[in-house]
Simulated scan of single mutants.
Amino acid sequence: MRLKSGLVATAAALATVVIPLIASPAAAASGTEATGSTNWYYGRMVIGWRINPYRLDPIQIVAQDRATDGYVVGIRLITNGASGHKVWSMRTVPSGQTTASWSTYPEAGWIDNASFEVCQIGASSGVIARCESSSVMNNPFDDSSM
């Protein structure tokens, strides 16, 4: 009986070590984060990187309009990778609000890195007045063996 319970304990201990080692790399890497701010905006993106399928999952986006200057604040994701340089659609802080947040799950093939731009957009014209870029968030996975 002692031998049998010893074998069960050993098997359980091995399972806790071996199973994570053979788990697929499809699991998410811990998120990378970039923020940016000035007197007219605050922007933040937190990205969870996944493979199998390649995607950014999830992306948490926050934008804040800090100035009452007749401009709307918009934020957009920018990625570089297998699909080339891609500028994703702009998300804007709705009129009458100072802060907005979104979650998204874009799939775009292998993505090497991502960043975001926060832009001032004319409230009446819809024309982008200026944009500021965040730091670059690099994919934590090594694709050399893929």
Rank of each mutant, 00 (worst) to 15 (best):
A63G: 03
G126K: 11
A27L: 12
Y54D: 14
D112Y: 06
S24F: 02
I128L: 01
G31H: 11
S125Q: 06
V118K: 03
T38M: 05
G81N: 02
I78Y: 04
H85L: 13
W40Y: 09
Q120H: 06
L14R: 03
P106Y: 04
R76D: 04
T35E: 11
G48M: 13
F141Q: 04
I59V: 13
S30C: 07
S134I: 03
V87K: 11
I61F: 11
T98S: 15
E33S: 15
S125E: 07
S30Q: 14
I128V: 15
C131F: 00
A12C: 11
I128C: 01
S133R: 13
V17Y: 05
S95Y: 14
A129D: 09
A11E: 03
E132K: 05
G81Y: 02
F141W: 08
G31A: 15
V87I: 15
A11V: 08
I121H: 00
G96H: 10
C131V: 02
G70W: 01
E132R: 07
N139C: 11
S37T: 12
S133V: 00
R91G: 04
P25H: 04
C119R: 01
A114C: 14
R55D: 03
T99N: 07
T38Y: 03
E117G: 06
W49F: 07
I128Y: 02
G81W: 04
T92E: 06
A67Q: 09
R55K: 12
T35N: 10
T98V: 14
G74H: 01
A63V: 01
F141G: 03
S133Y: 00
I51R: 15
A13F: 14
V72M: 08
Q120W: 00
I111T: 15
A67M: 05
S134N: 06
V18N: 03
G36K: 09
I75R: 02
F141P: 04
P53L: 05
N139T: 13
T35W: 02
D57Y: 12
V46I: 15
V8T: 13
V127R: 15
P25N: 09
G122K: 03
G31N: 14
